[in-house]
Simulated scan of single mutants.
Amino acid sequence: MPAGPKMLLLAAAAIVVAALPTEAWAAVACAGVVLLAYLASGVGVRELGRQVWGLRWIVLVTAVGQLIFLGPEPALANTVRVVAALLVAALLPLTTRVEDMLDALERGFAPLRRAGVDAERAALLLAVTITTIPVLARLAAEVREAQRARGVRPSLRAGVVPFVVLSLRHADQLGDALAARGIR
């Protein structure tokens, strides 16, 4: 599927997921749709498992918070809805080249030029944002692996500083690369 329709389908899926009721059947429906999306895209169940594992802390925080304030059924439904939206969103960079996303975004933003929006710059901003998320996930994994290699038990407190340093270094390199291409 071309990048433009794929992004519109993703946006529609996110809206539908957000509009679902907080009932158990909605959680089952979301899980089924996500499974079908990963199978139909050719990415597969193994990648779905990796994506779910990457979201484990979001799942935990969301589920616990919802459970405390809303009860079991709404907690399950809301947590699965959030995770489903994130998993479907993760399919976009897994199945679409950045260049294709950038072109589609530029075409989509073109009508906003009349309102003074720089379509190329806005598209580049969104494309950089979309592609930076997997980079940050990889950096977090590298910090955890480095901690394990040193015999340090991975922890949030011990991993924050190295992760922030690596993230800022990546941001500086990205900024330098954009500046070298004449983009401010």
Rank of each mutant, 00 (worst) to 15 (best):
V61G: 03
I15N: 01
G54Q: 11
P111Y: 03
L91A: 04
G54E: 10
A90E: 11
V88L: 15
L35N: 04
A12D: 04
L94N: 14
A27M: 09
A29C: 04
P72W: 15
V33D: 04
V128P: 09
M7R: 09
R107F: 02
R121E: 11
T131I: 02
L124T: 10
L70W: 13
V33C: 11
G116T: 05
A63E: 01
L60P: 08
G32H: 06
I15P: 00
A12F: 13
T22G: 13
A12S: 10
L60Y: 03
V82P: 10
A29E: 05
P2E: 13
R56F: 03
L105I: 06
Q66H: 11
P2D: 14
L35Q: 03
E120F: 08
I15K: 01
T79P: 03
A122G: 03
A110P: 05
A14D: 08
V135F: 01
V128K: 02
A3T: 09
V34W: 04
E99H: 08
A122L: 14
R114S: 10
A14Q: 00
A85M: 00
M7E: 07
L87K: 13
N78V: 14
W53Y: 12
G54L: 12
V17E: 02
G108F: 10
T131Y: 12
L86Y: 04
V28M: 07
A37T: 13
R114E: 09
R114L: 15
A104D: 02
I58L: 15
L112N: 12
P5N: 07
V98A: 15
Q66S: 01
P72T: 09
V88F: 12
A27I: 00
T96S: 06
E73H: 07
A115Y: 10
A115R: 14
F69Q: 08
L20M: 13
I58C: 07
I58N: 07
L39Y: 00
G116R: 06
A127Q: 06
L86I: 06
V17C: 04
P2H: 12
E99D: 14
G54Y: 05
R97V: 05
R81V: 08
G49L: 13
V83T: 14
P134F: 14
P134C: 13
A26R: 03
R81G: 11
A123H: 07
V135I: 14
E106I: 04
A37Q: 02
I133V: 15
T95K: 00
G108K: 05
A26T: 11
E120K: 12
W25L: 15
L39M: 12
R46S: 12
R113M: 02
L39S: 07
P5Q: 10
I58P: 05
A31V: 01
A13P: 03
G4F: 14
A40N: 10
V128C: 02
N78D: 12
L39W: 05
P93C: 09
W53I: 13
A19G: 15
V16Q: 08
E47K: 13
A75P: 11
R97Y: 01
A27K: 02
